[in-house]
Design a protein around this nucleic acid. Structure first.
Length: 572
RNA sequence: GCUGGAGUAGCUCAGUCGGUAGAGCACGUCCUUGGUAAGGACGGGGUCACGGGUUCAAUUCCCGUCUCCAGCUCCA
């Protein structure tokens, strides 16, 4: 028996329980999802948390009754009459969109019937372990203009042990939430009351982590033929009118009026890079031109969508714009994707999702352009033998794109890297290069980010490593704990010695017991703890306690430094 | 933005059926000078998110705002 069928059937049982308890409730849809199932209901009164228990109880009764799931095929007309009689208006709406003349319905027990393709389990008694988890609102058919329904989420497993393991795992995952770990490890925080929602403050350790990431990126971009640029944070509104953002992205832009001139806090970096491109006449020999900027942008996201560092209002993109010839497009895209994969590997991410989004209904650009761009994107993925999903019609209005997503601790996907072709901006800004025949032509423009935003990426990193970063990323690599005051001087000497070679280290000289200071270093997830007492001073060594390893070793400070440098260079 | 839940010390939370609040951790001072995950004593710290209303009296009840959490929608 597969889990999906089990969960789908469990959703039916939940709907049946709700209908038995509150017959006036109308049913919408109730599928199985990755970790469970849900069902959407339309009911005048709100469900409460206690109602979930009542529903669970009723579900247990239905399961105990061991009622069979019975499939019946009906003509569309028969089905319409059936659901019309029950006043299931949502089901009628679904029926209308089924092209076939025959539809199937599933009966459970005497009274409950649901429009459903199936398959289902044989009878309700086959459900051995389930739990209702939460309540939420959800728009009918996912459209915010439709009425909001009440959704109940639940999950279901083959055995009670598996269910309990899932719930335990879920609790553990919550513990690695970057919103909890970040402030706990003194990496970053958001002061929504004092400074505003969605605006991030990096504390010293977080700022260090960020610097390490930024340094790595700048170096890698230079290696790959990108040029570094820096553009202003505010620019005149006129520029954004030319780019089209002023018209199409207004509700997300922060604007300010100074001496009768309107300025915009940049929500994107593209117009800035375009101005630099346009600063002189470009020859086909100059292309491709690749401008890279760690560009901080501000977007006024809706109140309900902010989420820790994963969705914020001010963030820094590792943004680049590539201006190239049509003949260079494919190669540029391929090397961006390779760049993304190399980078993800270095940072320890192996499990990533790739999506290719194609032309939407509302779009600009010729069929030819779209075809070339979409084919170039897809060919690159094929050449690199990558698995990807296609999102038909999900591209931007100005071009197709490839998105690369990482999952957070709670298995929610977040878009990080993206490569997007753009037919709009080169036209709007009238970008040109002089081709071999001496005529001016329009270059193709690619937008791309590797990490996405530093903020979002740091959130993913924190959750991926549970704050226990590999040595090369760790803001504090070594903590030195001298046992007693008489050993402070030697400890500080070792500290200075390591710092002089660029090791990020601190001495814990607090008047606390050794045990307590070791405990604190462990809670801070420090990779190496050096214990220094009289024994070490006499032998001119340090005792090394590595996180997660029981046996300690003793080395001279010089040996230890070499060891650290090797580990840092390995980026593991 | 929508639906529901929530906001008490730096953190985790208790409490007040309306009479301005308490614990543990953290922090400070002192004692302790400790060999591998919490030594001890004393102490400081709160406009009970913010703004209105009801009341003799509001942290508590009512309304509004802000923010957070889950989900939906959105995400150039």
């Amino acid at each position: 028996m597969d889990l999906e069928t089990l969960r789908h059937s469990c959703a039916h049982i939940m709907a049946q329980a709700v209908k038995e308890l509150w017959p006036e409730t109308r049913l919408a849809i109730g599928p199985a999802i990755e970790d469970g199932f849900y069902y959407d209901f339309d009911r005048p009164e709100q469900f409460s948390e206690e109602d979930l228990l009542t529903i669970e109880e009723r579900m247990h009764q239905i399961i105990q009754r061991d009622e069979p799931f019975i499939r019946k095929e009906l003509s569309k007309k028969e089905a319409e009459e059936l659901f019309q009689g029950m006043q299931e208006t949502y089901k009628l709406e679904l029926l209308k969109e089924i092209p076939d003349d025959k539809v199937s319905v599933y009966y459970t027990g005497k009274s409950f019937v649901d429009l459903c393709r199936g398959p289902h389990i044989l009878s309700t008694g086959q459900i051995k372990a389930f739990k209702l988890l939460s309540l939420a609102g959800a728009y009918w058919r996912g459209n915010e203009n439709n009425p909001m329904l009440q959704r109940i989420y639940g999950t279901c497993f083959l055995s009670q042990q598996e269910l309990e393991a899932y719930l335990r795992d879920f609790e553990e995952r919550k513990q690695r939430d970057h919103r909890k770990l970040g402030p706990n490890l003194e990496l970053f925080d958001i002061y929504q009351q004092e400074a505003g929602a969605g605006l991030v403050f990096y504390h010293p350790k977080g700022a260090l982590l960020r610097k390490i990431i930024e340094d790595y990126e700048k170096q890698e971009h230079l290696k790959r033929g990108y040029e570094l640029v820096v553009t202003p944070h505010i620019m005149q509104a006129d520029l954004w009118k030319t780019s089209g953002h002023y018209q199409y992205y207004r509700q997300n832009m922060y604007t300010l009026q100074i001496e009768n001139k309107e300025f915009v806090l940049k929500p994107m970096n593209c117009p800035g890079h375009i101005l630099i491109y346009k600063s002189k006449v470009r020859s086909w020999r100059d292309l491709p031109i690749r401008y890279f900027e760690l560009g901080t942008v501000y977007r006024h996201e809706k109140a309900g969508v902010m989420h820790g560092l994963l969705r914020v209002r001010g963030f820094t993109q590792d943004d680049a714009h590539i201006f190239c010839l049509p003949s260079q497009l494919q190669e540029e895209i391929r090397s961006v994707i390779e760049f993304v994969f190399e980078t993800m590997k270095v940072f320890g991410f192996n499990d990533i999702e790739i999506e290719l989004s194609t032309r939407p209904e509302k779009s600009i650009g010729s069929d030819e352009d779209w075809q070339l761009a979409t084919a170039s994107l897809e060919n690159s993925l094929k050449q690199l033998e990558l698995k990807y999903k296609i999102n038909p019609g999900e591209g931007a209005f100005y071009g197709p794109k490839i998105d690369i997503k990482l999952k957070d601790a709670l298995k929610r996907s977040w878009q990080c890297a993206t490569v997007q072709c753009d037919f709009s901006l080169p036209k709007r800004f009238n970008l040109e290069y002089i081709d071999t025949d001496g005529t001016a032509k329009q270059p193709i423009m690619l937008h791309r980010v590797i990490l996405g935003s530093i903020e979002r990426f740091i959130a993913c990193l924190v959750e991926h490593y549970k704050g226990d970063f590999p040595l090369w990323l760790a803001p504090e690599q070594v903590r030195i704990i001298p046992i007693a005051e008489e050993t402070f001087t030697y400890a500080q000497q070792v500290c200075k010695f390591l710092q002089a070679s660029g090791i990020r280290t601190h001495c814990d000289l607090r008047n606390q017991t050794l045990n307590k200071r070791i405990r604190q270093a462990e809670l801070d997830k420090i990779k190496y703890i050096l214990i220094i007492g009289n024994k070490e001073i006499q032998q001119k060594v340090v005792t090394i306690r590595r996180r997660g390893i029981k046996e300690q070793i003793t080395q001279t400070p010089e040996q230890f430094l070499t060891h650290l440098q090797t580990e840092i260079a390995s980026r593991r």
